[in-house]
Each structure stands twice: as structure tokens, then as C-alpha cells.
């Protein structure tokens, strides 16, 4: 089944990036979210999928009974999910503020800070 999920991850990356290169910043945030899911699923998949048994030690035992899922990718993904959420939440609110401040959701209209000789940057 890993190969199926490899394709799924590919689709998540493709759709995520496609959304990110849209001109509307609102779509960018959706792209970011898909990309985050893609990365997590990628780690999960390349850590090899083991159907069933979660990595718990049964009561009274010292070790889980094999075969168990690899706990380390799970821990990594958990960290990544949470970090991704924090960053996403910030990005979401940022985009909202950008829209309110610039008055447009078209990224092509946000070019003043890259222009030469322009006082957009001074206080």
C-alpha cells in the first residue's frame, strides 16, 4: 500500500504547490495547508506502514509484541503537525491582515517593497 500513499503524497504536493502559485493570497493558505498534510503523510509512509498494532507496551509486559508500528515517525509527525498548525494559524491571520492593509488579495499588486527607489519602506 505504500506506493499508493506515495502517489497520494505526490498529489498533495502538486495541489498544494498549484494553489500556492495562484495570484489570490487566500488560495496560498490552502496550498500551505495541503503541503503540510503532504509532508506529514510522506514521513508516515516512508517510515513504512504497519497495519494494526500501535506502539504500546501491554500492561505487565516490558516490550510491545511485534510487529508494531514504528513509534519514531509518529512522534516526529506529531511534532510536525503541531508546529505546522502554529505556523498555519499565524499565516492565516497574517493573510487576513495583508488583505485588510493592502486592500487586495492579488499578490501581483504587492510589489512596492521590491521596487527600486520608493519610500514604501521608510517610516
Amino acid at each position: 500500500m505504500e506506493s499508493v500513499f506515495a502517489v497520494v503524497v505526490g498529489i498533495l504536493y502538486a495541489t498544494g504547490l498549484y494553489l500556492m502559485v495562484r495570484r489570490s493570497i487566500v488560495k496560498t493558505i490552502f496550498g500551505l495547508a495541503l503541503l503540510g498534510n503532504g509532508a506529514n503523510l510522506l514521513i508516515f509512509t516512508v517510515g513504512r506502514l504497519t497495519a494494526g498494532r500501535p506502539p504500546y507496551v501491554p500492561i505487565g509486559a516490558l516490550e510491545p509484541l511485534p510487529p508494531v508500528a514504528d513509534p519514531l515517525p509518529q512522534a516526529l509527525i506529531l511534532t510536525a503537525i503541531v508546529i505546522g498548525f502554529g505556523v498555519q494559524a499565524f499565516a492565516l491571520v497574517l493573510i487576513k491582515r495583508v488583505y485588510q492593509t493592502v486592500g487586495s488579495d492579488d499578490v501581483d499588486e504587492m510589489t512596492t517593497t521590491d521596487r527600486i527607489a520608493d519610500d514604501g519602506g521608510s517610516r
Binding site: I25, L94, I95, R97, V98, T101, V102, V107, M110, T111, T112, T113, G120, G121
Partner: peptide, 11 residues
């Protein structure tokens, strides 16, 4: 929260 900052920050 200034406009320039917002434009820079998004990129």
C-alpha cells in the same frame, strides 16, 4: 502592521 511590512512578510 504597516503596508510595507505586510507585503514583505507575506513573501
Amino acid at each position: 502592521g504597516k503596508r510595507a511590512q505586510m507585503e514583505g512578510a507575506i513573501k
